[in-house]
């Protein structure tokens, strides 16, 4: 893999490649060290952190669906304080060269500011504001479906951090470009899209929902065309860089997102199935650049030909 043509600066976060491990599917990164070389991971995006530890939802949390999966984990995490005290030092020791982005959410605008300030420490290269977890009330979804609330959270976070701020958008809205523009105007340095789509599975033997939380977030290859469309629309609407994600399993999938206007991508559910996926996708992009005689991955960004 030729890292010079893959090295990417994403809103001030320097990455070895433009391919990251998406929040909630990549642990804290070090869990993958048996399967891939963490130096070749663009960035580790942490499991969603909350102000206090969370046990997550009761009952069944995972369901297979056609070409994908539903989850309703419910932001199980040890809380930000344990993360900062115990986990971050371990990650920085085991993956000293990999960019680390902390994903977090709160239940009030003030929470987001407090979290952002706590995360404004060495070892964190950027922060991803989750206003789009569909599975818990406190997961920010109330902020992710109202442009005014999304802007207020973004402003609060920006006022409490020196790190690049990425806002992760929900696809569960009528017009995602309205949300994108609102958070751009409020000062977001970059956008990540899409989070999962709300879905449901019913067990026809018991007549009950399969998932403990009734509904869950859909991810995997099934959502990819929706995600590509949304990245394309948002790229037309804003001037800040975009991280594209949603169903990426291969380099070909990732290249679609780049052409649609994303300057970086993240691999999500596919990490569960093929735990070397983040690096495999980066290698595939590199091979594509070689084949098409391109000197840097940025030459693909937004180059979809329309009309």
């Amino acid at each position: 893999m030729n890292l010079t043509r893959l090295a990417t600066d994403f809103a001030g976060i320097r990455m070895a490649t433009p391919v990251m491990g998406a929040s909630g599917t990549f642990g804290f990164g070090v869990e993958y060290s048996d399967f891939l070389d963490l130096d070749q991971v663009g960035a580790i995006i942490s499991k969603g952190l909350t102000p206090l530890p969370r046990a997550g939802n009761e009952g069944v949390r995972i369901a297979e669906t056609p070409s994908g999966m539903l989850n309703c984990i419910g932001l199980e995490n040890p809380g930000i304080d344990v993360f900062l005290r115990d986990i971050l030092p371990k990650v920085r020791k085991e993956a000293p060269n990999t960019a680390f982005i902390a994903n977090f959410s709160g239940s009030s605008v003030e929470d987001y500011g407090i979290m952002a300030e706590k995360l404004d420490v060495d070892g964190v290269d950027g922060i991803e504001v989750n206003i789009s977890c569909p599975n818990v009330k406190e997961g920010g979804i109330v902020f992710g479906t109202d442009p005014k609330a999304a802007a207020a959270v973004t402003k609060e976070v920006k006022a409490h951090t020196t790190k690049p701020v990425i806002v992760k958008l929900s696809p569960n809205v009528t017009d995602i470009t309205v949300m994108a523009r609102a958070v751009e105007k409020a000062g977001a340095d970059a956008l990540a899209l899409i989070n999962t789509l709300t879905g449901m599975v019913i067990d026809i033997n018991t007549w009950k929902p399969l998932l403990g939380n009734v509904t869950g977030g859909l991810s995997g290859p099934a959502v990819k065309p929706i995600a590509v469309r949304m990245v394309y629309q948002v790229a037309q609407a804003v001037n800040i860089p975009i991280m594209g994600l949603g169903g990426i399993a291969t380099a070909e999938d990732a290249i679609e997102f780049l052409l649609a206007g994303a300057s970086t991508v993240a691999v999500g559910a596919e990490n569960f199935v093929h735990p070397d996926a983040v690096v495999r996708v980066a290698e595939g992009i590199d091979a594509y650049l070689e084949k098409h005689n391109l000197s840097h991955v940025s030459e693909l960004v937004g180059k979809v030909k329309i009309g």
């Binding site: 869990e31 499991k47 949390r61 995972i62 569960f272």
Partner: peptide, 22 residues
Amino acid sequence: KRMACGFGVCLGCTFEGKSGKR
């Protein structure tokens, strides 16, 4: 228990033990 990954990242299979530890 249902799990998506098998190595500790999806958190589909967690539970609270009698000691209170997850």
